[in-house]
Design a protein around this nucleic acid. Sequence first.
DNA 1: CGTGACGTTGATATGATTCAACTTGAGTGG
DNA 2: CCACTCAAGTTGAATCATATCAACGTCACG
Lengths: 240, 240
Amino acid sequence: VLRVLGALVHLSDDELTLMRRMGAYGEVIPAGAALGAGERRAAPRLILRGWACRQRVLPDGRRQIFGFLLPGDSTGLGPDRRALDEQATVALTRVECIDATILSEILALNDHRHDGLRTALSLQRHHEDGWLLDHVVRLGRLSAVERTAHLILELRERLVRAGLSSGAGLPFPLTQEVLADSLGLSLVHTSRILGQMKHDGVIALNGGWLTLLDEPRLCAAAGFSPSAAPIRQLRTGNAP
Amino acid sequence: VLRVLGALVHLSDDELTLMRRMGAYGEVIPAGAALGAGERRAAPRLILRGWACRQRVLPDGRRQIFGFLLPGDSTGLGPDRRALDEQATVALTRVECIDATILSEILALNDHRHDGLRTALSLQRHHEDGWLLDHVVRLGRLSAVERTAHLILELRERLVRAGLSSGAGLPFPLTQEVLADSLGLSLVHTSRILGQMKHDGVIALNGGWLTLLDEPRLCAAAGFSPSAAPIRQLRTGNAP
DNA sequence: CGTGACGTTGATATGATTCAACTTGAGTGG
DNA sequence: CCACTCAAGTTGAATCATATCAACGTCACG
């Protein structure tokens, strides 16, 4: 599963052997537990299997999920501190991952032989930042259906790249509560939206597996289609 | 105004002279215009005066603002590509800024004499990422009043650091439309929220100047107060 | 055969949007 | 100096989207 990362972003040379040796630092985190819990400063980690999310919980219990970590994704790896990496990371399923502290130190040496890995990881961080921006747009400007469809499509794309989805179907271990806390919706409303999408024959969902039954319609529902709504003028004034 | 940046983050040595020389590359951007419009790839820029924002516009005209750039903030400066820097940046007021292409190239040389500047700028990027995460929480989990109050407080803190606010009042050149597109609300609703806050004597707003009349109440409204709402249990099941 | 996690569904409440009208104040040009 | 225009803000009424409350179904697991 680790070659996922290599394949996912870049060619690599004897970096592969380095990565394989990292396998020695594998660990397993049960669903619901935090990655790096109990550590003063969470160690960098590479996810081999399972899903996790980055989240923040408000004092009154409300939760907001910033994004998801899929197999092949990493956290804490990279030269500089990153705000996302400082948020709590929680396993949503059983997660198999690698403590990449050593890897991080090796990369910090700036050995040219590891340039490939460095750029690969930096590219990944860049992607994650991009997804975060998409997330902002979802939360700020998309309707509930649009948000849901859009997130599904994002996850599918990422899973396809990671070799975990053929395109028409994808593993989908997310609880509706998790989905809701990610999309900024209530649990109940999320359930209704999903129910509606199933009823409309756009998706099917059972046993943690999601199937795209009508991809064009799903894409359209994601809202980035042309002429989804009449162009909203930016304050036209009271002219005509 | 530029020493704002120096004071804002870090001590510096003869980097100051470097920065002063950068003044030669000053430019003025009228309100409403995009920073870096017409450039194939937007040049790095340092803002001396005025406000700008990073935004994305959907095909159907909806707009989402990711965050604001205040005097002392920069865009495009730093070793690696950054997703935020690749979004459109638009001047909200008349903006005086510096084309920092040269500065960027100088910093890329990794001359140790400029370590201070590099870390200062990297810190700033880190801050901006943090604000983006706050923004996600606002959009996803705060009510309209909470969002508004919270954003006001964030802007105040930043302006205080930049020496542009004494704490009780701050320049506030944002249109209600801009505010709405930032907070993920409609223009009309934003107007009502502001009106209500004024009516309640929490803030006063005129002529682009915002005054905090009742800071404790504003902080409370920002929602991060204890017991703002009954603790929401995470799916308690149907026990009692 | 309880118990708890997860999902679904209905009824109702509320927060936010939309549409539309009306102000106000700052230019601008006659 | 006044009429005109336009950007910005305000307000009311109707409507819609989403939240909340509450109940119930189902399945897995001890």
